[in-house]
Design a protein around this nucleic acid. Sequence first.
DNA 1: GATGAACTTGACCGTTTGGTCAACAAACGC
DNA 2: GCGTTTGTTGACCAAACGGTCAAGTTCATC
Lengths: 207, 207
Amino acid sequence: MTEARPQTRIQKKNRETILDAALDVFSSEGFRGATLDQIASAASLSKPNVLYYFSSKEAIYTELLSELLDTWLDPLRALDPKGDPIDELVAYMRRKFEMSRQYPRESRLFANEIVQGAPRIVDEINGPLKSLVDKTAKLIQSWIHAGRLAPVDPYHLVFSIWATTQHYADFDVQVRGILTPEGDSHLDDAEAFLVTLYTRTLTPTSN
Amino acid sequence: MTEARPQTRIQKKNRETILDAALDVFSSEGFRGATLDQIASAASLSKPNVLYYFSSKEAIYTELLSELLDTWLDPLRALDPKGDPIDELVAYMRRKFEMSRQYPRESRLFANEIVQGAPRIVDEINGPLKSLVDKTAKLIQSWIHAGRLAPVDPYHLVFSIWATTQHYADFDVQVRGILTPEGDSHLDDAEAFLVTLYTRTLTPTSN
DNA sequence: GATGAACTTGACCGTTTGGTCAACAAACGC
DNA sequence: GCGTTTGTTGACCAAACGGTCAAGTTCATC
């Protein structure tokens, strides 16, 4: 997707600095709420200098977004049709949770974009994302058909995994306001809860 | 909270028109992304006229937020300690889901605010909201202690209910992109899934 | 260490933004 | 009807915004 044009050391370093700063700003302010001055300031660069590396505010944003989409679906692609269904789905949930935990800014950037109607990635959603979820849903359905999973709607199962895992990144302020945790410890509890939630939901009943 | 000052017919009508238009705009653009011109245009009023009824853009926004917070917690307050635990919690989830379904704009407004750090409602979260959730968590814990619910972390249970129900309002574009539903029918499936999810999770095992 | 390419930035520009104001129009109370 | 309150708006303002540019500085290469 992103072609690897020749880059000097300085280019590489500064582009990374800018993208990191922009991720901070965009994820907490949204596209329109973010300003080039904020980004430049967060990157400790002058505004014209930022625009020397990226042609526009929009260009920085779309670069972040496409980088993100590339990796965001990896956990789902890693579902193994040959594995144990419950283990696979719980493991998928764990990978997704881990991503929200390690990349909360990316999660919030994505959330901001979607909540506001996803004007820039609507094609990605209707195309590649839909295809991948459709494929996954068929796999889950086949597992259910084989009696290896309790019957559930595969699509809504996937949605619920997305919702519950991303919640801890996207609604971090709310979670922290209620749990008043120190550090990250509450996320271990969250993961344990989610493992229980999905294990109980997916385990077939004996009769 | 909002004191009822004397209002003429015109005031009442126009304030409502403005708030409704502003909800449209704020919920889909965020606070910073929304402009007074958009709001005025959506309300079919001139910009100075909008500012005749509200002292500032911020005033419109905070009015919407405080109206919202008032009603947003009602479903949780309606939990009945004397009812059947599973029925009560599933009914709570249903009420929450119904709110997201009927008031998706409000849900997105809230989501926007929280994702961006909730600068204006951080006190509400750390105060009243935390108290209410703490109280609910104790109730759930007592139900578990009495063996009437399968053991789960009460806080994360509540978070998961919030996450899964709001998801359908906040991430509507994504859900629709994948399911390509006509109308609202997919939300019935979603609700059925969530009932299953929480029933299975909360039902105590016999042994 | 000279030369050209890569990098940096203060000053600036046009537009958009939230908000004001004075002047006018409608509605209300009598 | 008539005066006063209430409602309405075009014109305007200062600040903030995304983006440009010319002039300067640093860097790699020979």
